[in-house]
Amino acid sequence: MTSGTEGTGALAQEVAAPRPRVRWRARLALVLAAGFGLVAMSWPLLTTPGGALTETTSGPWLFALLLPLVTAAVLMQLSDGGLDARAVAMLGVMSAVVAAVRPFGAGAAGVETVFFLIILAGRVFGAGFGFILGCTGLFASALLTGGVGPWMPFQMFAAAFVGLGAGLLPRTGTDTRGGRAAELVLLAAYAVVSSILYGLLLNLSFWPFAITQGNLAYVPGGGIGENLPRLFAYSLATSLGWDIGRAITTAVLIALTGPLLLRVLRRAARRANWV
């Protein structure tokens, strides 16, 4: 019902009305937040023997409390001076869609139905929008299902960067058949990489307090040589299947729904340009 009404010429002009502008301060904040997030998730691998974090077991809790603060600071910088009403409404609706499709992936192993939406929306509406959507989408779905827990800050943060990265991918022409196919291939490849990275980083953030004794546990002060094989074995034993499942389902969903959803989202972006 949508095909045929839109000429390819209209698709070609990249209209992106509800794009939150990303100023230099917001960029700096994003880079700093990415640096902090990297430490917050992968500190078990990065600590050196004798470092202050190796002596306490409160690392994950500390970072789970500090991450919301960092996320709030970045969101404030991104929405500095007020978000457009259209961006707010669009964010709300897209977050609702994310929250509505998330339960579909909860039952089956590794089926993840959130990422393809965040990636496609980040692609159409830009990096800043993708970042905020990653946060608000996962937050809204956690609120709706009563799933707020110590893992939520990490999930929100990682999903936000998935959306940000989707907005930063290079442009392919969307006015030719080849350009649109190339865009889908690019997005699917990005989906595979980002899903596996997301799984590994989340695993890493939860690992030190999921298991504390035995061959698979994190050794405080063990350094990367001691802990990397243990992490690898832990991932293999627990979640690698899920991560690969998530990567495959996200890529397949993008390939299947991408043409339609990209068209729907671009139409909305064009129509939102009503000022």
């Binding site: 709030a72 969101l75 404030m76 929405s79 007020g82 978000l83 707010v88 409404a89 964010l91 709300g92 609706v93 977050s95 609702a96 929250a99 509505a100 905020i132 946060c135 608000t136 989408g137 937050f139 809204a140 609120l143 709706l144």
Partner: peptide, 15 residues
Amino acid sequence: LYEVSVAVVVALSVA
């Protein structure tokens, strides 16, 4: 964070 929280409120009522 008013704008972002408005977006979440919209999401909660749109779902």
